[in-house]
């Protein structure tokens, strides 16, 4: 080999030498190709079909759409309907309100639980954590089902709630039972129940790492426990709050099973609208349009989440390199 005179030696020989050393090139190409092709075929292609379908035209053929030919190549009418038909606007608002309410309540309920676990003794911590994760491993469907049993009009839980309500309010407001099933409140309640672990776990992971000597320093400098929480703990747990919030908000927005089983048929969420357009109205283009619109609803929080994740990762890497 000729003596190298320039640090920017010729590309070909450099590449050849690089190829020998495994974490750079070589057989990694094969490793990448297999899952890549799989995901393109079974995820990217269907995803693109949704986008294409949203500008197709509904026809009475099978499959029920037309694209080009006698139909317009790009049919934007579905997007117009999205903004004019109150069905879609209401479904959007319902989804958004439910998801925001569920996320906020999960945070309010989940934060003290996560903090409580993080501050518990070492041996308790792993037990409590396991107790939080355990329901997450049991079937999602069955967890929703368990609440159907509780919320029914003559269940012990409903009777208990009714008794409490009647004891608190004037006689004129007394109820025979609390109307829970098939309401929006039921959707929010069951969503909280299903996704609370997603809020608690990232919060716990964040809170558990906090340096408790900072709390002691703040107390030493004269802060009361509540003040310490506001000044020290809460600001440091923002990444955990963002992560937990996203993990609840995103699936709550597109939730399908919960409103289907405990929600009100007169106030559908977006997921149900997509399904109805597709399965009952056989309007593939409209279903796809609503799906695209739902994705846009998720893009903003997702970008926040990715940004926060990236920042945390960069920070960790910077710390690693310093060390």
């Amino acid at each position: 080999m000729a003596a190298i005179t320039d640090p920017l030696e010729d590309e070909a020989s450099r590449r050849r030498r690089l190829g020998r050393w495994f974490h750079r090139q070589g057989y990694m190409q094969g490793i990448i190709a297999i899952p890549y092709i799989w995901l393109v075929a079974w995820f990217l292609v269907p995803f693109l079909i949704i986008f294409a379908m949203s500008v197709a035209t509904r026809t009475p053929t099978a499959p029920p759409f037309g694209f080009g030919g006698e139909n317009p190549l790009l049919n934007w009418s579905h997007y117009e309907r999205l903004f004019t038909d109150s069905l879609y606007i209401r479904a959007y608002l319902t989804s958004l309100v439910n998801a925001v309410a569920a996320t906020a309540l999960c945070l309010v309920i989940g934060y003290p639980i996560a903090l409580g676990i993080a501050r518990a003794s070492r041996s308790w911590r792993s037990i409590l954590l396991m107790l939080v994760i355990l329901p997450f491993w049991t079937s999602f469907l069955l967890r929703v089902y368990a609440w159907i049993g509780l919320m029914g009009t003559n269940s012990w839980f409903n009777e208990m709630l009714t008794a409490v309500w009647n004891g608190l309010v004037p006689q004129a407001w007394e109820l025979a039972y609390v109307p829970l099933m098939n309401t929006n409140a039921a959707v929010i309640l069951v969503t909280i129940y299903s996704y609370l672990p997603f809020m608690i776990l990232p919060l716990y992971a964040n809170l558990e790492r906090l340096d408790l000597t900072l709390d002691e320093a703040a107390m030493d400098l004269g802060s009361r426990p509540m003040r310490v929480f506001w000044d020290i703990t809460l600001p440091q747990s923002v990444p955990g709050i963002i992560a937990g919030g996203m993990l609840v908000f995103i699936p709550a927005c597109g939730e399908f099973i919960i409103p289907n089983l405990v929600g009100s048929a007169s106030r559908p969420m977006i997921g149900a609208v997509i399904n109805d357009e597709f399965a009952y109205a056989r309007d593939w283009p409209m279903a796809s349009t609503v799906a695209v619109a739902l994705l846009f609803l998720l893009v903003v929080p997702l970008m926040v989440y990715t940004w926060a994740e990236q920042r945390a990762e960069d920070k960790a890497r910077a710390r690693e390199q310093e060390g």
Binding site: E9, R17, L18
Partner: peptide
């Protein structure tokens, strides 16, 4: 790591391009 420039010899043999 590969040197951007220069050679390394061990026991009389140029090992610059020899993998680890």
């Amino acid at each position: 790591e590969e040197p951007t420039k220069g050679r390394i010899h061990i026991d009389g043999r140029d090992v610059t391009d020899v993998p680890p």
